[in-house]
Design a binder for these strands. Structure first.
Length: 305
DNA sequence: GTTTGACCTGGGCAA
DNA sequence: ATTCCCAGGTCAAAG
């Protein structure tokens, strides 16, 4: 199947979107991206304004892909709203077409509990290990893929089994969170129609979920586009570009250490929401890849001086 | 309300 | 190569 895009009204860049670091279950082979979404393997590539895809074992329509990549977001409008200064503007020009994906909340929750204090290659491995062990195997194009485990699959697993997936101290948090969800004591989907503040409070009650994980789950899977996750990279970017909005002592203190306190997190995150507005999460999404691209590290350094 | 360490251990790269 | 360092933070205990 394929989707015809109109880059002026519906800008989309598959490459930027799949490389931005939000998703952990995609890899590129040749010209095609392969990913696991729900119960299916998705094979997809973009050729200019055409998005060509195939899914297996089930066939889905274009709406499925449009929903997953949030093609329903009015990106030109969103970008115009977060376009507050030269820093974001450059990020927007550079990564135009980058979109937040609409992940499944359960998978997103567990993924970001795992993401705590690990780098992306390690996170991808953890997710793959969990999926190999507790998910369903799919053979497609002579490759094996594994779906993400269901809540009951993890809830009934042994702690040791989960640890063997290289989760370390996250294993206990994943197991406990899984039990709570599996018992029906936490309605993840229900948070979609709960407002940001309340949904965040509820998420924070889950083991392994602090402010950062909660904001990621809200932004990436529950349609809370005002959520502004602050990790170590976002901290550096915000305090580099926007240091004038914070006290000099605050900037020096927070940049000087590797972790931040809950109070410092809230200061930076609420600045993001206030400064960028209702689509702050998109601003975060566009600023984030700057931290991983060479040219900009120089710019960040110069800002820190 | 804040601050401070401990925390599993896999990758990545020479800090 | 091998060792060393740090990682998309969270939690609990202490001041």
């Amino acid at each position: 199947m394929e989707i015809q895009l109109d880059q002026s009204t519906t800008p989309f860049d598959l490459e930027h979107t799949l490389r931005c670091g939000q998703l952990f279950q995609w890899e590129k082979r040749g010209d095609w991206w392969y990913g696991v979404v729900g119960e299916m393997v998705v094979k997809i590539r973009q050729i200019n304004d055409r998005l060509v895809f195939q899914t297996f074992p089930e066939e889905v329509d274009a709406d499925f892909i449009k929903n997953y990549f949030r093609l329903d977001d009015n990106l030109p409008l969103i970008l115009s709203k977060i376009d507050k200064d030269g820093h974001v503007r450059r990020a927007i020009q550079r990564f135009r077409g980058l979109r937040i994906s609409r992940q499944e909340p359960w998978e997103c929750l567990i993924s970001y509990i795992c993401a705590t204090y690990k780098n992306i290659p390690a996170i991808k491995n953890m997710i793959l290990n969990l999926s190999k062990r507790f998910g369903e195997k799919i053979n497609f194009n002579s490759h094996y893929f594994y779906t993400f485990p269901k809540p009951s699959d993890l809830a009934h697993a042994g702690l040791e089994e989960i640890k063997e997936c290289k989760l370390g101290f996250r294993a206990e948090r994943v197991l406990e969170a899984s039990k709570i969800v599996d018992r029906g004591e936490f309605n993840l989907e229900g948070l979609r129609k709960t407002d940001y503040e309340k949904a965040k409070r509820e998420l924070l009650s889950l083991p392994g979920v602090g402010q950062k994980v909660a904001d990621c789950v809200l932004l990436f899977s529950l349609d809370k586009l005002e959520a502004f996750p602050v990790d170590i990279w976002m901290k550096r970017i915000i305090l580099g570009f926007y240091q004038n909005y914070f006290g000099a002592s605050f900037v020096e203190r927070v940049l000087g250490k590797s972790s931040i306190t809950p109070g410092e997190y809230e200061t930076i995150s609420s600045f993001g929401r206030r400064y960028f507005g209702e689509y702050a999460g998109y601003a975060q999404e566009y600023l984030f890849p700057l931290s991983r691209s060479q040219g900009k590290l120089v710019a960040l350094d110069s800002c820190n001086r």
